[in-house]
Design a protein around this nucleic acid. Structure first.
Length: 422
RNA sequence: GGAGGAAUGGCAGAGCGGUCGAUUGCGGCAGUCUUGAAAACUGUUGAAGGUAACACUUCCGGGGGUUCGAAUCCCUCUUCCUCCGCCA
């Protein structure tokens, strides 16, 4: 959520930035400013009256102590009159505040200066391509066929147990998942991230904190009985660890990594895009999250991108890094890099990581602050990224490294998989 | 699931319905002393809104109520502790 004070002072800039996203409800900015003015006015009025009430109450106490009943009664009447006036004022104030919050929640984050203009994924900028492009042998197979051939994943069994989008990993398929998770976590903790195992169900406040609520409840599985949401990403519980906290400057940067299953309803997706491991309702992911000094957040963003890139390189997969254009960025992000790996058999790029700087958009909602050198309390910046989402990595691993003698795994995985081949 | 008890500032822990944003201790910060450090001593130290700066308003787990006035009384929810039951 953007800060009202910032909007108030930078109306034109805010509108210009939202334009980079092709945000259609630019009028909301003026709405926010006008509601904020109303809020201030109403608040001042009611607080002035409240101040008089407080003073009179104090006087009444003193009069009662002296036994001056009549004077006290007269003041009581004054208080009653004031309170009668405050009543409707505070009702209106509450209504205006609620409208203001609702409007604010609908404003997406402002794209950073370096974010390219654009509407669709075609407008994303390819920053870098790397990794060896595979020269696949004749008869190369897509991952869903390979998964079947080597008995790694049973999609039909998942249909039976749960429904489509819930694959069952079996034998070496299950072992590969475990090896990847372990490898990713080790890779992250070696870089200074603290490992976290969070709950995978979160309450409403947490879902609101990272921006899943309001409006995106349809994308999350919801447990009605307990009013809890299955997490769509570890970002939600992990970032919320510091919700409503004021940390010391010396604690920054806070760096955390977590493996969790992730759950996404993704209603309305059909066809070849959801074939095999391309898009699932439940998948495994290792996430990295950082809370940092605002002045350093863009350096940290680059550092995180470099970190994820090193991880991908070690898997010996063809990849590319995109800087997302305004129109393709998530609601809460100020700048996002996507990582894609090349699925040779499908001849298409698959997103496996998204690394974003949210600046103070999430931390303003969550009230994650720190005391700077001058003793001033201010919001930290939050960032996160996947390192990595497993299914598409598995898809690409199988396809890229397939040989006539089996799947030959990259060296980095040997110690974890305890074998060089599937 | 059942029965009791509790929830106060970073932590610990006071607080009679009025002068309490809240005694005190620890911790933090600054200073005195010291070559430096420790100890000791002195001062300082919650957040949000608001203001040019003050003033002022709100916050003692959340929500509601009683009262001229609530951290203090009542209702309710949540969480924690103790005991019982169940249980990976």
């Amino acid at each position: 959520m953007l800060q009202v004070a910032f909007i108030r002072q930078n109306v034109d800039f805010v509108k210009e930035r939202l334009g980079v996203r092709n945000f259609s409800e630019i009028g909301l900015v003026d709405t926010v400013v006008s509601l904020d003015e109303q809020r201030k006015k109403l608040q001042q009025e009611s607080e002035t009256s409240q101040s008089s009430v407080n003073a009179l109450s104090k006087e009444i106490g003193q009069l009662m102590a002296k036994g001056q009943k009549e004077e006290a009664e007269a003041k009581k009447q004054q208080v009653a009159d004031l309170k009668a006036a405050i009543g409707p004022l505070s009702t209106r104030l509450a209504a205006v505040e609620e409208e203001l919050t609702t409007a604010l929640l609908r404003l997406p984050n402002l794209p950073a200066a370096a974010v390219p203009r654009g509407k669709t994924p075609e407008d994303n900028v390819i920053v870098k391509e790397g990794g060896p492009m595979p020269a696949l042998p004749a008869g190369a197979q897509p991952h869903w066929d390979l998964a079947k051939k080597y008995n790694l994943i049973d999609f039909e069994l998942g249909n039976k147990l749960t429904g489509s989008g819930f694959p069952v990993y079996i034998d070496k398929g299950a072992k590969l998942q475990r090896a990847l998770i372990q490898y990713f976590l080790d890779f992250n903790t070696a870089a200074g991230y603290t490992e976290i195992e969070p709950p995978i169900l979160v309450n409403e406040a947490s879902a609101r904190g990272t921006g899943q609520l309001p409006d995106k409840e349809g994308q999350m599985y919801y447990v009605n009985e307990d009013n809890l949401y299955l997490i769509p990403t570890a970002e939600v519980p992990v970032t919320n660890i510091y919700r409503d906290e004021i940390v010391k400057e010396t604690q920054l940067p806070i760096r955390m990594t977590a493996y969790t299953p992730c759950f996404r309803r993704e209603a309305g997706s059909y066809g070849k895009d959801v074939r095999g491991l391309n898009r699932l309702h439940q998948f495994d992911k290792v996430e990295i999250v950082q809370l940092v000094d605002p002045a350093k957040s863009y350096d940290v963003l680059e550092e995180m991108v470099a970190h994820v890139e090193r991880l991908l390189l070690s898997l010996e997969l063809p990849y590319r890094i995109l800087r997302l254009c305004g129109g393709d960025m998530g609601f809460t992000s100020a700048m996002t890099y996507d990582f894609e790996v090349y699925s040779a058999a499908q001849e298409k790029w698959l997103e496996v990581s998204s690394v974003s700087n949210f600046e103070s958009f999430q931390t303003n909602r969550m009230k994650i602050r720190y005391k700077d050198g001058g003793g001033k309390t201010q919001l930290v910046h939050s960032l996160n990224g996947s390192s990595l989402a497993l299914p598409r990595i598995v898809a690409c691993l199988l396809e890229t490294h397939q040989t006539a003698e089996g799947i030959s795994l990259p060296a980095a995985l040997h110690p974890y998989f305890k074998a060089e081949k599937i």
